[in-house]
């Protein structure tokens, strides 16, 4: 048990340190861990990713918690998660300190001046990916030049729900995003989305 916990700390610390670019970047590391240790079954990893993507919270954290729980129960879940976030905390603290110190440097402000539009584009492309993954179904697209084939590409109830939320959010800016998420779950159940 104790050796498993120590392995968890070591492996997830390494994952947190080297997985750059968000939650799914941790996946190859998890496969690597499963190949080297018997406390993590490679067959449960796809499940783990599915759970990680569809439960609330950062995906990388969800995957680490799930893997830790599988390996060593509740202590494993907590320890794997803490080990994963420790390198982030240390690195960000250092970067934040550096940025504070050089906030007035013209090369730093110059970098952020060109970086912000690029980040806006990164987020826009991520939004497009979320949209295509959940609302458009390119698989059903047929070459027939018919309007019905065009409409068939979309998951219509979801598209309508998304448009309603978009319009509502544009007009009533005061409504909290959490309200829409809870309503989305209810509407999803009622209309079997």
């Amino acid at each position: 048990m104790l050796t498993t916990l120590l392995h968890l700390i070591w492996e997830f610390f390494k994952t947190g340190l080297f997985a750059i670019g968000g939650g799914l970047a941790t996946v190859p590391f998890i496969y690597d861990i499963a190949e080297r240790y018997d406390w993590l079954d490679i067959a449960v990893i796809p499940d783990m990713i599915a759970v990680g993507e569809s439960t609330p919270g950062p995906i990388g954290i969800n995957i680490a918690t799930y893997a830790g729980y599988n390996a060593a129960g509740v202590p494993g879940a907590i320890i794997a998660t803490l080990a994963l976030i420790t390198p982030s905390i240390i690195v960000i603290m250092i970067v934040a300190k550096f940025l504070q110190k050089f906030a007035q440097n013209r090369f730093v402000t110059g970098s952020f001046y060109t970086l912000r539009p690029a980040v806006a584009a990164l987020i826009a492309s991520a939004a497009w990916q979320v949209f295509t993954a959940s609302i458009i179904n390119l698989g059903t697209f047929t070459a027939a030049p018919a309007f019905s084939s065009f409409l068939g590409m979309f998951d219509l109830p979801k598209l309508i729900l998304a448009l309603c939320v978009f319009l509502a959010g544009t007009f009533w800016k005061k409504i909290h995003p959490i309200v829409y998420i809870v309503l989305g779950a209810i509407v999803g159940i009622i209309f079997k989305m």
Partner: peptide
């Protein structure tokens, strides 16, 4: 399914 549609709009 419903939550995903809402998340699209929010993002």
């Amino acid at each position: 399914g419903g939550i995903r549609a809402v998340v699209c709009a929010l993002i």
